[in-house]
């Protein structure tokens, strides 16, 4: 197996960055452009559809449940003869501010930082590009039927020009990315190191530790569910909800090293829909989690909520 991977890596074409305008009027499309391994549609590539582990687009080249897409931004591009504008006043990546925006995306923040630091608008320098930053798009799943699904991501960018011949021009760009599961790349054992790692990365990172909720900036309910913080904040920890606390519940109620009580663990009950007075169902104002994922949490709690290793039935 290892030999096979090595052969693929050695013969595959590395991710190639192609300049794409990102949309908008032809005369203004060069104000800011993306450089990314776009590959679709084949006749005129402007979006990315990437299979996890495909080295032509996934920069880590490994089947790990995440497509690592290298994206750079360039200002005042000369890629199109139809656009000769040069003068960028500002480039704004959507959802890049860690200020409670529910759609805040750290990858967009990283891209914006590159823009501010390396392009440093305003500038009229032509072909000025950032270093590539890595947009990490995880696949969705595995779900109860043993299937994984693609996940889409979108990079939106709005660029305003400096005053050029008495006018300010606007260039709105969009880059679409879709990360697809690798063939035979949808087993929990392959994607995660253990049951809690799966809960952290498949549930908390994607549905809970997001801006406005249980991330550092917001810390809703005095509960932080980011990596490195979630476990100790949950296991045998008293809930902030007064009724749950008064009833003797824990966020994750562990009885001993191999036993827990799912019925008095607020984490699980919140995912299922808690009793009256115990707060709202989570994820708040979102669709409920896939039932198979909730089952993973229940099995994990019942097995004493180990921090490492696999609980039977969760892999």
């Amino acid at each position: 197996m290892l030999a096979a991977v090595a052969i693929i890596a050695a013969t595959a074409r590395p991710a190639a960055a192609i300049t794409v305008g990102g949309g908008g009027g032809a005369r203004t499309d060069c104000l800011a452009v993306f450089q990314a391994p776009v590959n679709t549609p084949a006749s005129h590539p402007r979006s990315i559809v990437c299979a996890d582990g495909d080295p032509t687009c996934d920069a880590d080249g490994v089947v790990n449940g995440v497509c690592a897409i290298a994206i750079a931004v360039c200002a005042n591009s000369t890629f199109s003869p139809m656009c000769t504008l040069a003068g960028v006043q500002s480039i704004t990546i959507a959802h890049a501010r860690d200020d409670g925006d529910p759609k805040f995306d750290p990858a967009m923040q990283a891209l914006q930082q590159r823009v501010q630091s390396e392009i440093d608008p305003p500038t009229s320098t032509t072909g000025l590009c950032t270093s590539p930053t890595t947009l990490r798009v995880p696949i969705r799943g595995p779900f109860g039927n043993g299937m994984c699904k693609p996940r889409k991501a979108v990079v939106d960018m709005v660029t305003l020009s400096t005053v050029i011949d008495g006018a300010v021009y606007r260039d709105a760009d969009r880059l679409r990315v879709r990360c697809e599961p690798a063939p035979d790349g949808c087993t929990a054992q392959a994607l995660f190191s253990g049951t809690f790692d799966r809960i952290q990365r498949q549930i908390f990172d994607q549905s809970c530790a997001v801006s406005g909720c249980h991330d550092s900036q917001s810390r809703a309910g005095d509960l932080l569910l980011e990596p490195g913080a979630a476990y100790t904040n949950l296991v045998d920890a008293a809930p902030a909800n007064l009724n749950a606390n008064a009833a003797g519940w824990k966020r994750v109620h562990v009885l001993d090293a191999t036993t827990g009580d799912p019925d008095t663990s607020l984490l699980l009950q919140k995912l299922l829909g808690p009793p009256a007075g115990f707060g709202a169902r989570m994820p708040f104002n979102r669709r409920p989690l896939d039932r198979a994922l909730i089952d993973v949490v229940e099995l994990w709690i019942a097995a004493g909520a180990p921090q490492t290793g696999w609980v039977p039935g969760t892999d």
Binding site: D98, P106, A107, Q109, A110, Q113, P132, T134
Partner: peptide, 17 residues
Amino acid sequence: GGYDTHSDQGAADPAGQ
């Protein structure tokens, strides 16, 4: 600005954030 490195922080690579 730019120190809020939730993602793609980089280690010793000169291209890192």
